[in-house]
Design a protein around this nucleic acid. Structure first.
Lengths: 119, 119
DNA sequence: CGGTATCCTCCCTGATACTG
DNA sequence: CAGTATCAGGGAGGATACCG
């Protein structure tokens, strides 16, 4: 998630890194559909470690994009959903993801052409 | 730019990482305005090493987003501009950057509130 | 179930030096 | 001017173990 915040850079970049990070992207897009419990979201995303998902969700929660609802029951139940702010962000990333999907073929053609001139 | 491509992940994610990477974002947004020479772009972006800018531009060129025009003159002159595909990508990132700018205050309020409950 | 704590590895980044 | 080569450091991310 590139959450190191040591170097001097504009604060906007940090927010962009949070929402466009590998797991941030997938979490936001999934949550656009409906709310998820922690493990449920983990299965939905697939191949994400507990540590990284927890870290990602915490960062997004701190930025005010994700709402965390921890119910005081045994066993613990925690639901994650998007805030209004998070929904805006998620729609932007989804659009970017969709653009990437639409243009993927063109990108791969470009890569093949680029590689051909150098092989 | 997270250009390591070792792990198995969907190819779309790689393109997203290229366009949303730290220097990728800044390069695309700058090139949306006009074409730039290498050093000119370096000064415009600021604080980017030659290595990282070259690496970033190569990746974007390979993906078919940036056009590289190397003129056979002494001293070398290389102009970079956006392709049609790159312009589409750049507009998306610019939109995301603008959203971040617009909502930055809200994000910082959320962070302050989040931190307050834990301090 | 929903996390934290710890360790460890890889590779991204930047600095420096060199080249055509 | 526009890069490439090389090296060093540090942080992101995963594996594992443990906890409330």
């Amino acid at each position: 998630m590139n959450m190191a915040e040591s170097e001097p850079m504009c604060p906007e970049r940090l927010v962009m890194e949070h929402v466009t990070s590998r797991w941030g992207t997938l979490a936001l897009i999934a949550l656009l559909e409906r709310s998820y419990r922690f493990s449920e979201l983990r299965r939905e995303i697939g191949r994400v470690s507990e540590k990284m998902l927890a870290q990602t969700l915490q960062t997004l929660e701190r930025d005010g994009l994700v709402h965390r609802d921890a119910k005081p029951v045994i066993p613990p139940r925690v639901d994650y959903s998007l805030t209004d702010l998070g929904r805006e962000a998620a729609e932007q990333v989804r659009d970017l993801a969709r653009w990437t999907e639409r243009r993927m073929a063109a990108v791969e053609r470009a890569r093949a052409a680029y590689d051909a001139t150098r092989a």
